[in-house]
């Protein structure tokens, strides 16, 4: 992840009134890499499994993955787990390259959305995503009967030729908003939980409103440990990672 020094020094900032709305804080000190989030995401979002061969070709459809990067050599070797999903960039590289406006920024929820019914499968967006979080339906993947009974009716089942990615479980956001509205109140902090945060046994993933300074996610993101992934690309990610603790090994 060497820094490209050809990029001129420039610090991206949110324009007034355009700040993000929903965000995540992921505590890498307590993420144990258990992959519960990966499974939960697949179960919630009707993500197909692709089988050994396609998975080997890098066509796996995971919307969230646990990265683990090696540093050093045995025995001074160390690594860390880092869950990576769509960072819902405020200035998203995937958006300007889409010729059919299938990858667009939602003004209402300030999310980066993928409109399946517009997508024609150019895959430019995936090519331009520095986080490599967009996945493409290379085939109509099979869900033999009766596995299809599990499909979540709140999430569109995608076809071959369509790009997809993490939505921050927008169906759950809508559900909570709808519920709150029908009760004449605001959505309270912690009411919306994407599938990954809901499953996380360590509670390492926290989701909420980053435009509310009192929310749990805002408070966590403001801790000294927070940083953004590939910050120098000026993508304005809405996911904050909290650095892990000291890792002295074999010292």
């Amino acid at each position: 992840m060497a820094k490209n020094h050809n990029i001129p020094e420039y610090k991206a900032e949110w324009k007034a009134g355009e700040e993000g709305k929903w965000g995540m804080a992921i505590d890498m000190d307590i993420c144990t890499g258990c992959n519960a989030c990966v499974a939960a995401c697949a179960m919630e979002n009707n993500i197909p499994f692709v089988g050994e061969e396609d998975a080997g070709y890098g066509r796996g459809m995971h919307w969230i993955r646990i990265e683990r990067l090696w540093e050093g050599k045995y025995p001074e070797v160390k690594t860390e787990f880092q869950p990576v999903m769509c960072q819902q960039c405020g200035s998203a590289p995937c958006e300007p390259v889409c010729p059919v406006f299938a990858s667009v920024h939602s003004q209402a929820e300030k999310l980066n959305v993928q409109v399946y019914n517009r997508c024609v499968g150019t895959r430019y967006c995936a090519n331009n995503c520095p986080y490599v979080v967009r996945t493409f339906n290379w085939r109509d993947y099979d869900r033999p009967e009766p596995l299809n009974n599990q499909l979540n009716p709140d999430v569109t089942v995608r076809q071959r030729g369509v790009m997809e990615k993490c939505t921050f479980c927008v169906q759950r956001i809508h559900k909570a908003q709808d519920q709150a509205k029908s009760e004449g109140r605001e959505v309270f902090d912690g009411e919306v939980q994407p599938a990954c945060a809901q499953a996380c046994p360590a509670d390492a993933i926290v989701f909420g409103r980053i435009d509310d300074p009192e929310s749990r996610v805002s408070k966590l993101a403001k801790q000294g440990r927070g940083y953004k992934l590939l910050e120098d690309l000026n993508t304005l990610p809405q996911v904050t990672y909290l650095k892990g603790g000291s890792h002295v090994r074999n010292g």
């Binding site: 258990c34 519960a36 499974a39 939960a40 033999p144 596995l147 009974n149 499953a199």
Partner: peptide
Amino acid sequence: NLGKTCARGQAALQGLYNP
């Protein structure tokens, strides 16, 4: 588990609906 699950628990439905 206080509301949490592991990956295996999440996939329990694929046992129920296993072809």
